[in-house]
Amino acid sequence: MTRSLSDDRPDDPADRTGSDAVADAEPAAVTGGPSADDRGRIKVGVGELAVTSEDATLTTSGLGSCVAVALVDDRAGVRGLLHAMLPAGEGRTTAASRPAKYVDTGVDTLIAAIDDAGGDPRRLEARVAGGAEMLDLTDAVGPRNVERVGEVLDAAGVPIVASDVGDTVGRTVRFGPDGRLVVRAADGFERAI
């Protein structure tokens, strides 16, 4: 058997259509797209993002100092979730970096992907979770992430309608078709924002 030379790289986000259940929405040089399962759950890993225009629930787990940004255009039924690790990628992104690793490039990429999937960037609402100050050892990377999310969304004209950020606790989130972000803390306490 001979392996062919077919192009197996992820599609360019611009080629995606709104009917895609999963859009990992990252440029061709980026790997690490999320995976979907048949019950409509799309796992978003660290430094990844995903967009859906269907009923799938977007999830990301183990948020510590990382921050999750959930965007929804209710009217178009398009949602997207980003799990970013660091505040700013400007001038620091290399060919090997995932744009979703950083809040600034990640939010921009997420908004573009939602646009491509049929959402309207002008109608977006944001929900934010994570950005905890897990350790004294690491200098406030969580709060810096949260601050950057505020700046980037403000610049993009996207209002933050709810957030569950900061503190010293790890979180796991689910972003379902109703547009609410369910945040579960390490102690099991769960709330929808």
Partner: peptide, 15 residues
């Protein structure tokens, strides 16, 4: 805490 959450700031700093 959640294992992944605990290690995430260390990974972020190195990243």
């Amino acid at each position: 805490d959640i294992g992944a959450s605990t290690i995430s700031p260390l990974v972020a700093k190195l990243s």
